[in-house]
Design a protein around this nucleic acid. Sequence first.
DNA 1: CATATTTACGCAAACCTTTGCGTTGTTTTT
DNA 2: AAAAACAACGCAAAGGTTTGCGTAAATATG
Lengths: 342, 342
Amino acid sequence: MTQKKREVSLKDIADELGTSISTVSRALKNSTEISESMKDKIKTLARERNYRPNPFAVNLLKNSPRIIGIIVPDIVTHFFASIISGINDTARTNSYSVIISSSNESYDNEKRIIEDFLSIRVEGIIACVSQQTKDFSHYENLYNNNIPLVFYDRVFDNGLIPCVVSDNADSAYMATNHLIENGAKRIAFIGGANHIDIVKERKHGYLQSLRDNNFKIEPKLVVCNHLGYNEGYAATHKLLSLRQPPDAILAMNDSLAFGAMKAIKDLRLSIPDDVSIIGYTDEQHSLYVEPALTAVTHQTYKMGNEVCKLLLNYINGDRSGKKIIIPSILSVRDSSVKKNNI
Amino acid sequence: MTQKKREVSLKDIADELGTSISTVSRALKNSTEISESMKDKIKTLARERNYRPNPFAVNLLKNSPRIIGIIVPDIVTHFFASIISGINDTARTNSYSVIISSSNESYDNEKRIIEDFLSIRVEGIIACVSQQTKDFSHYENLYNNNIPLVFYDRVFDNGLIPCVVSDNADSAYMATNHLIENGAKRIAFIGGANHIDIVKERKHGYLQSLRDNNFKIEPKLVVCNHLGYNEGYAATHKLLSLRQPPDAILAMNDSLAFGAMKAIKDLRLSIPDDVSIIGYTDEQHSLYVEPALTAVTHQTYKMGNEVCKLLLNYINGDRSGKKIIIPSILSVRDSSVKKNNI
DNA sequence: CATATTTACGCAAACCTTTGCGTTGTTTTT
DNA sequence: AAAAACAACGCAAAGGTTTGCGTAAATATG
């Protein structure tokens, strides 16, 4: 194993120039206490020798490593990847580094990651709680120990911790309204497990729209099982074989929506004329299916920006526990606009 | 701004127990030089006080922070996200942390990231070169300064630096063979800019298959412009209006493939009977389009595992400059199997 | 010219941990 | 019983940086 060579230190430069460590340190910080000529000599030599301050020594002294930890349920999903990208960029512009760790939706991983982050001495943590976690004591500990902590998307909301969420109820309300405006008479909702907040909220928006438009609410049209392509297919199949089948579907997810579309097509029904459909997805693929899928898209990159700003504010002493709601956008495409709309 | 409270140190524990720092340090490391009773006292108090060794002090001494830096052209793309995920997991199992930074395909960012990584004192760097970079001196500097460096997917290959790549030529060869076996007579290739290695390699595999199968090579059937949905659409439109149009298309990219499918459908031709098609994509969406798209899928997660292992070996002194080729998999679906296959 | 001020630096402590070596007091060996 | 061995611990240096304070020489002030 080749020897790892020691990096050049202040002392090296001081020795070579026959001066002291403190003079070199101050010169590189452009202190007025050092003469211009000395500063020149020091700076040029430092550049030549490729001097970089040892971050461990600096952090040992200052204890502000400018690193933030991100907990993400899953790196691979576009939604999260895009949020990370947003966090990353605003962190960088504030000269913070980020360190990303995926819980893979596991509670145990989540706890381990927090331990790791504390060991690394991150300055703060940006988290999205895993689907599995029902106990929030690990997060409460962070809060009680005054470790800067903010949430995004899936939050532990005790009213004290800042967070960024999307307007789930509003977006579902908006989407349902859109379906109604475009001629839908019986609208189904396909969602995920009922205990998940997002599901609750979106269902709430959906129901509210029905009420506001004087539609009858029919429990049979609300299917909440699991998020996934196959579930979407199965649910839709079942819905469309009801005595009074829906003529529109609001799917809480892209895989659900694509599964639903497949089921509709397999039943030889047309989209959107027989059944219109709206999904939730940020990915381009809603453009590639046929017909192009109308979808609620999230401003994920912006969510990343905002949640990072929240953390930086928190680090700088803002304990207001702000909650930021990022509005979604309804991207209307072909799948929701009935041509025979009266 | 609330005061950041100092973390508990060895000295705190030593003082509280009326012993010395070195005893505490050794006790926590389970040294045999410390009596069992003392070890017990120290360990329990340390646990109580939530003691964590200060990583900066440790690194200052040991100079091995166990952090590796990843340079990625783009976090949001599934391909890279999945590779990152693979890197992340093997890094973690070897108790390394990773820090990810996106170049956004920019040469300047790439150089800046390397500077940042060096400032943070990462132990090594895993990189995928941005599309923009044509000058590799920043990477050569790393190599010359003996900073552990490995590449994945898009590599700077001087034969000395370890890297992990996919078998581009082979996969294209395999895909083309598959099209031929399934009745294609005239196969087109749609790729990206010619100067990109991946394009060259895949085109090479495509051509090799044609030669090996005694097909005539027709330059008109090879379109290499830019990677993108619209380009795929336009190229296909043009190809299919040739006097002798292709009856099969190998598209180098998922967006290209989806664009091509749209063009085929818009021309009222059937997939795969009139025109069969194969794309390159790892995402589930190839299942959601109609017909389901046959595609070359990469073992991205595995690529991440392998490239991380290469770096760890490098860090541990293996300077063999190994090159690992990860085989792709042809996922045969509906779009490539002609029913009227003779 | 003598005193006061400024300029330009150096000294040393502090941040926290690891570890070689020295120092006790106790136990084993001959 | 004296010498040797050992067990259990403490001292202090090292790692690189920052910064308050001290100090010498140079300059300004009266």
